[in-house]
């Protein structure tokens, strides 16, 4: 009798103990989009293979081979448009117009010329001028089903947009497999869904002036994507000048911006990526105006932004006021 009581009590304690530990997360990773894609996923059937497959599949945004770029091999070459790609390109087109061509997806040949990842010196101005003639969204012809390139050597690069798009697709696949919550990071593009114990996830936003792992702020969010753009991410120094990867498609040179970084939170990861890059390129004043204009634009889903200004001010849009916490004394949060 006593033994039974002891046994019962033991069981109760064991159960209590297990409950207190909550569900365990699975840590997953796969190499895709030329970067490491990681995830923490709670629940779901076989999340590991779902994750790998969906992450790989998202790479096929512009071709079944997973290309990140499309280049016209001859004048008149065309890129067939899927529904997803057409939607992304429509947004890119709006951004190109509103930035007066500073943001332009056809910057691909210029990015390849600069090759910021491995270059040690800038290209000659002749080379920049020559390649610049093959850049310009307005030269393209967009039909309902294809994007037509009028000149050989023109092209578009959807490398970074692809990561946001792929993360979104992977979230959908994981949810369909019954996963309750997850944190995905595709080379810095973060996608969040669900929650653990009812708590939102915590996303640290890197301090561009700090060392690795240092943040200037933190967001408590879920069911959204978060993307940050800034000239500090990829660059090289030559004769005392810094050359970063965010090029002005009008001039062919790295764009000067008074923003250190722009963070965008949006349910659409591809849009978050496009918008954060375009807003950073515009700088604080024009960037804020662009943000307001995009909020009114029906082609864009509602989104929120955090501008980190060069002079240390942090601007946070209304939708993130409660989710954001400043974590560095080097910056100040300006509340209007």
């Amino acid at each position: 009798m006593k033994r039974r009581l002891v046994l019962a009590l033991s069981l109760v304690f064991c159960l209590l103990y297990l409950c207190s530990c909550a569900t365990f997360a699975q840590s997953l990773q796969v190499w895709a989009y030329d970067t490491l894609c990681t995830a923490k996923v709670w629940g779901g059937t076989n999340p590991s293979s779902v994750f790998s497959e969906a992450a790989a599949e998202g790479q096929n945004l512009i071709s079944p081979k997973g290309d990140k770029q499309f280049y016209a091999q001859k004048a008149g070459d065309s890129l067939p448009l899927t529904e997803d790609l057409a939607r992304i390109l429509r947004q890119a087109e709006v951004l190109c117009e509103k930035t007066e061509g500073v943001f332009d997806l056809t910057v691909a040949p210029l990015s390849d010329l600069w090759d910021v990842n491995s270059a040690t010196e800038p290209p000659s101005s002749e080379a920049v001028g020559e390649v610049l003639s093959r850049v310009g969204w307005d030269k393209l012809i967009r039909t309902d089903s294809a994007l037509i390139f009028p000149e050989r050597g023109m092209g578009i690069d959807i490398g970074s947009v692809g990561k946001g798009y792929g993360a979104d697709k992977t979230v959908l696949a994981l949810k369909a497999a019954g996963a309750e919550a997850g944190v995905l990071s595709f080379g810095g593009n973060v996608a969040l869904f669900g929650s653990v114990n009812g708590e939102p996830f915590r996303v640290g936003i890197r301090d561009p002036k700090g060392s690795a792992g240092e943040t200037f702020g933190e967001l408590r969010l879920t069911d959204t994507s978060v993307v940050t753009s800034g000239g500090y991410e990829r660059f090289f120094d030559y004769e005392g000048t810094r050359y970063h990867h965010l090029l002005d498609a009008k001039t062919g040179y790295p764009r000067q911006s008074d923003l250190l970084s722009v963070t965008v939170a949006c349910a659409d990861g591809a849009q978050a990526d496009l918008a954060s890059t375009a807003l950073w390129l515009m700088g604080e004043e024009k960037g804020l105006a662009l943000y307001e204009a995009l909020c009114e634009n029906p082609l864009f889903r509602p989104f929120d932004v955090i501008f980190l200004c060069e002079d240390g001010r942090v601007l946070v849009s209304d939708g993130l006021k409660d989710a954001f916490t400043l974590t560095s004394q080097n910056y100040r949060w300006e509340k209007p």
Binding site: S185, G188, V190, R202, G204, I205, V226, V227, T228
Partner: peptide, 10 residues
């Protein structure tokens, strides 16, 4: 006291 964040952006 705060702990590690779940993810980093930037």
């Amino acid at each position: 006291i705060s702990g590690e964040v779940d993810a980093y952006v930037g």
